[in-house]
């Protein structure tokens, strides 16, 4: 079955959606949407550098995203510019640098569109392993830092005063975000990764009353979006990454409609699961 490119794509897409669900919740709780965007734009520079120094694509993207994140933290401490200006500055600079570096390498023929919007139908067995091993690692780490990270999200001062050591959780979370971006770039592309992170989480917010419940629903929504998106792109012969994001948007709109009651039933059920788990 895994010989079929479509099923490989489905498997990788579902894997990425499972990781993006809970991480995306933290992205919207902590108001990091544009931070996510900046990191994913840095991914393009990571890809370019991977070709230049001939190292592993995913590793290079992870390193560049993580460095950009750390540079941002440094800039915040050193300059008096507001955060959104710094984010804009970095996001567009790294995107531009990525394209310039790619332009220099005339010997590399690269499909820019697949980088920007994803190329999920071209995933290999290697990608499947990467998503599921990398993804498991991300989820295990997220579970271990959940409490301090969540307390930090509610109030940094409170979490620090009451001995949660939130600063460490913050840095680890930033690295997780860079890791997720580096492993999901093939699915939806540089420009749409943040969409996969925040649209399912925003959809889940409409029907959740607890953080763990919201993370679970966000994952479910992400998985549904990937499955529906992929089948739709097969049906209508559309680009798969954007179709997945469009499917997520449809789910978001649905949660705003009266259909909401039906989804609340699902939500209650998953809340029971979450309560049993905690």
């Amino acid at each position: 079955m895994f010989d079929d490119f479509f099923y490989r794509a489905l498997l990788v897409g579902v894997g990425v959606a499972i990781i993006a669900g809970p991480l995306g919740c933290f992205v919207i709780w902590r108001r990091l949407s544009y931070f996510g965007d900046t990191l994913s734009h840095a991914a393009l520079l990571g890809v370019a550098l991977a070709f230049l120094v001939e190292i592993n694509f995913t590793l290079s993207v992870f390193i560049v995203s993580a460095l950009v994140a750390l540079f941002l933290i440094y800039l915040r401490a050193k300059t008096s510019l507001p955060s959104d200006a710094l984010l804009g500055l970095l996001a567009h600079s790294v995107l531009a640098l990525g394209i310039v570096v790619l332009g220099f390498m005339t010997w590399v023929r690269i499909d820019l569109l697949s980088l920007l919007f994803g190329d999920i139908l071209a995933v290999s067995m290697y990608d499947i392993w990467l998503v599921f091993l990398g993804g498991s690692l991300v989820l295990v780490i997220l579970v271990t830092i959940w409490r301090p990270l969540f307390a930090d999200t509610v109030s940094h001062d409170l979490a620090t005063a009451e001995g949660m050591n939130p600063q460490r959780a913050r840095v680890i979370f930033t690295l997780l975000l860079a890791l997720v971006i580096s492993i999901s770039i093939k699915v939806v592309g540089v420009l749409l990764i943040t969409g996969l992170l925040i649209i399912p989480a925003a959809t889940a917010r409409n029907v959740s009353s607890g953080p763990v419940q919201m993370a679970i629903i966000s994952t479910v929504v992400g998985v549904i979006a990937v499955v529906c998106g992929l089948f739709s792109s097969l049906q209508w012969d559309t680009s798969s990454g954007p179709t997945i994001i469009a499917a997520a948007l449809v789910l978001f709109v649905l949660t705003l409609l009266p259909l909401r009651r039906a989804i609340t039933l699902v939500a209650d059920y998953s809340a029971k699961l979450a309560n049993r788990g905690s």
């Binding site: 919207i28 709780w29 108001r31 409490r147 969540f150 307390a151 999200t153 509610v154 109030s155 001062d157 409170l158 979490a159 009451e162 001995g163 949660m164 917010r205 959740s208 009353s209 607890g210 953080p211 419940q213 919201m214």
Partner: peptide, 22 residues
């Protein structure tokens, strides 16, 4: 703290909040 503003995107109930740091 002097002020604590809970972001509207954060779904958190009183019981969960009270168990948050211990």
């Amino acid at each position: 703290p002097q002020s604590l503003s809970i972001d509207w995107t954060l779904p958190i109930r009183v019981d969960h909040f009270m168990k948050m740091t211990g």
